[in-house]
């Protein structure tokens, strides 16, 4: 096909995942679409979906994936379905983060994935796993637990997430239930390095900081915090983990926490994932709630995109601001989910 497309794809393959690569891929997609070349458009979108999912642009991933799945249904002899159906999981993992998407639509998607997997002979295991993941996101933990049990009783197949990723969700579940000792037990294979992958332990380390802290094991937690931050600081996808780092530092080293906050606020402000933004704001408000006990004259560095530059010297107003931000999203999520889970969660921090 046209030279433009090939050149752009080559350029994209040379770039690491992230914003710049996505920009080039979007250009390639435009070139393919303008030329009406479905296969090229599909190829570029496959790359885009992966890059966007793993660098914190879930909206872009959902849009590109929607195009792919629609085209696949119309011309399924043209495209390979394995990668496409694999990426369906990534999409399901992200849709519930957007409060504007009603629950019914999310559940429809999950059922659609279940049907497609079944048609190709894949087991129900992946469905059960993502059902649990979604239930955890809705705050329906008891029901999530039942699906986690069911998922663990089934055999792995080619659509299963890697073991490290699965283990990580089991840790998340213990964290949500607030079972600190069990959290650490379940986290052991990851913390010891036996299980790892492209995303693990990056996404794991920050989740065990608070459990360790509550169990009085601050020295271990401090070490893991530094390691965690080193792993997550460079990737836009890890905003939540940055937030968890800030949350922990708010208790142990609040001025270091403030440094992290200043460094990552602009990333949070124009992030695509509202759920991650909410958690970042919530953790930021715990930081300022801690900092307001200090007597120093604050001059917090705020990026130009922050709407209230006048709050720079006023940590009390910053605390309020971020709490309000977090609660606003929590309220929308709770209305969508039909409970008051996130509102209470954030108030309890």
């Amino acid at each position: 096909m046209n030279l433009d497309f090939e050149e752009l794809m080559e350029e994209a393959y040379d770039l690491p995942r992230g914003k710049a690569q996505i920009a080039v891929l979007e250009q390639a997609i435009r070139a393919a679409d303008t030329a009406g070349d479905l296969e090229a458009g599909f190829e570029a979108r496959s790359e885009l979906v992966e890059s966007a999912i793993f660098s914190g642009y879930p909206m872009k991933a959902i849009v590109a994936f929607s195009w792919q799945l629609g085209q696949y249904d119309k011309n399924n002899d043209l495209f390979d379905n394995y990668q496409l159906l694999w990426s369906y999981k990534w999409i399901l993992d992200k849709v519930a983060c957007f409060p504007d998407i009603p629950r019914e639509q999310i559940d429809n998607l999950l059922d659609d994935m279940k049907k497609r997997y079944a048609e190709l002979g894949y087991s129900e295991r992946t469905y059960c796993f993502y059902k649990a993941v979604l239930l955890m996101q809705y705050g329906e933990l008891e029901e999530a637990g039942r699906y986690l049990d069911q998922f663990q009783s089934l055999d792995r197949d080619e659509m299963s997430d890697c073991e490290a990723c699965e283990q990580n969700r089991l840790i998340d579940y213990e964290v949500l239930l607030g079972r600190d000792e069990r959290t650490l037990r379940v986290a052991e294979p990851i913390l010891s390095g036996q299980m790892s992958c492209g995303e693990v332990p990056h996404v794991t380390l920050s989740t065990v900081l608070m459990p360790l802290y509550r169990l009085g094991r601050q020295e271990e937690a401090d070490k893991l915090q530094r390691k965690s931050y080193r792993l997550v600081k460079g990737n836009n996808d890890f905003l939540l983990q940055i937030g968890e780092n800030i949350r922990y530092l708010a208790l142990t080293d609040p001025f270091r926490g403030l440094e992290l906050f200043e460094k990552h606020l602009s990333q949070a402000l124009d992030h695509e994932n509202p759920w991650d933004q909410m958690m970042f704001s919530a953790y930021a408000s715990t930081l300022f709630s801690r900092l307001k006990q200090e007597t120093v004259a604050f001059q917090v560095k705020l990026p130009a995109s922050f709407p209230h530059p006048e709050f720079a010297s006023d940590v009390v107003r910053l605390e309020q601001h971020f709490l309000q931000e977090a609660l606003a999203t929590a309220d929308r999520l709770d209305r969508r989910n039909g409970n008051s889970y996130y509102g209470s969660l954030i108030q309890s921090l």
């Binding site: 909206m59 959902i62 929607s66 799945l69 629609g70 249904d73 504007d100 639509q105 999310i106 998607l109």
Partner: peptide, 12 residues
């Protein structure tokens, strides 16, 4: 896109 996803995109 498919119906299920089109409605999701609409909400988004």
């Amino acid at each position: 896109s498919t119906d299920a996803l089109s409605s999701v995109l609409n909400s988004l």
